[in-house]
Computed example of a mutant assay.
Amino acid sequence: MSDTGAATASPSLTVLVVDDDYRVASVHVGFVEAVPGFRVAGQAHTAADALRLAGELRPDLVLMDIYLPDGDGLQVVRQLLAEPAAPAVIVISAANDVATVRQAVQLGALHYLVKPFGFAQLAERLTAFRRAYDDLNGFPAEATQHDIDRIFDLLRPGTPAQADALRRLAPTLQSVYDAIAASDGSLSANDVASAIGISRTTAQRALTQLEQSDVLTLELRYGATGRPEHRYGVKRR
Rank of each mutant, 00 (worst) to 15 (best):
D3A: 11
A9F: 05
P11D: 13
L13S: 07
T14A: 13
V17N: 02
V24P: 00
H28K: 04
V40H: 08
Q43C: 11
A44V: 03
A44T: 04
L53W: 05
D65N: 14
D65V: 04
L68E: 00
G71L: 08
G73F: 01
A82N: 10
E83D: 10
P84G: 12
A86F: 02
V89H: 03
I92H: 03
A94D: 08
A95P: 04
A95S: 11
A95I: 07
A95Y: 06
Q103W: 08
L107V: 07
L107I: 15
L113W: 03
F117L: 06
G118V: 02
A120K: 06
L126G: 04
R130E: 06
Y133L: 05
D134N: 10
D135E: 12
L136E: 13
G138P: 02
P140G: 13
A141R: 15
A141Q: 15
Q145F: 08
D147K: 04
R150K: 11
I151N: 08
D153Q: 12
D153E: 15
L155R: 12
G158T: 09
Q162H: 14
D164G: 01
L169F: 07
A179L: 05
I180M: 05
N190H: 09
I198S: 06
T202R: 15
A203I: 03
R205V: 00
T208Y: 01
L218V: 13
T225S: 15
G226Q: 09
R237H: 12
